[in-house]
Design a binder for these strands. Structure first.
Lengths: 148, 148
DNA sequence: GTTTTTGCAAACCATTTGCAGGGTC
DNA sequence: GACCCTGCAAATGGTTTGCAAAAAC
């Protein structure tokens, strides 16, 4: 039950907006698919230079922005203040990030909506977006780092 | 029942850690007290230069870090990706930020803990910190911007 | 053929750091 | 008097921009 592969939609998503499917964008998309968990622009920049089919610095940043706008990527903020990205589904959800290995898992909105509604009532604000990011240690890293 | 004023505690908090209460830190603290809602380092830098009793760029950044570490400030990330700060109580809570005027309100953990626990169960992660930031429009801005 | 996109290099901006002088305990 | 802190200016690191050449439609 794979909800959607990020491979095909790219061309389509670009086309739908009259944007061009260029080699560079394709190469960035490929780099994204190989990524697991969170990564920074610097990570991708490294991929871009390492790779035989290189992509310029500026283009990497431009693609990152573009893909984020298109909803293929999401930008999150690590506790350190660094900006990171994750490939994700364009539906509302939250990220649980492993501080050890960077792996991330998406979880659905298990009751957050209700809390948001409650907070609207408490504060008098109309809340139109929220961000919940969770940081911890994933199961794998937990067993690995088992203290003596 | 005001839990704590941010005025007096500064000297005390510094002293408790063997840090010095210097003129510069005092001036930064004063600038913080005059702030409402969120502000960026740049905002403070501007205050620092405008003010008759100026504080150097580096010192502003150093104080911001220090005060954040001491729990007098919290650093949050705006949807734009910019880093911002808010003066706040050193207890766990969340921020509701007005996208129009930058004002912010703190709300307590109305059930978030339960959700976090649920997400731990769902993902297998041990979650040790989380961040919930909410963005919207405050009551005042809502009535002000009333569309025709 | 027209328009978008790329890549480079230079420009920018926010933040950090080294260091000598000054302030605080 | 010893040590911490400040301020300056220079260094840094990440990200953006101008522009001419190249690619996509």
């Amino acid at each position: 039950m794979a909800p959607s592969t990020s491979a095909a939609p790219i061309a389509e998503t670009l086309g739908r907006r009259g944007l061009r499917l260029t080699g560079a964008r394709q190469r960035v998309a490929d780099m994204l698919e190989k990524r697991r968990g969170t990564f920074t622009a610097a990570d991708l920049l490294e991929d871009a230079s390492r790779s035989d089919a290189a992509v310029g610095r500026a283009t990497v940043f431009r693609s990152l922005d573009l893909f984020t706008e298109l909803g293929l990527l999401e930008r999150i903020d690590l506790p350190t203040g660094d900006h990171a990205y994750v490939v994700c589904e364009p539906v509302h959800h939250h990220h649980v990030v492993c501080s050890v290995c960077g792996r991330q898992t998406e979880v659905e909105d298990a009751g957050v909506q209700a809390i948001v509604a409650e907070m609207e009532r408490q504060t008098g604000y109309r809340i139109d977006r929220h961000r919940l990011e969770l940081y911890g240690t994933c199961a794998a890293c937990r067993s690995a780092e088992q203290p003596s």
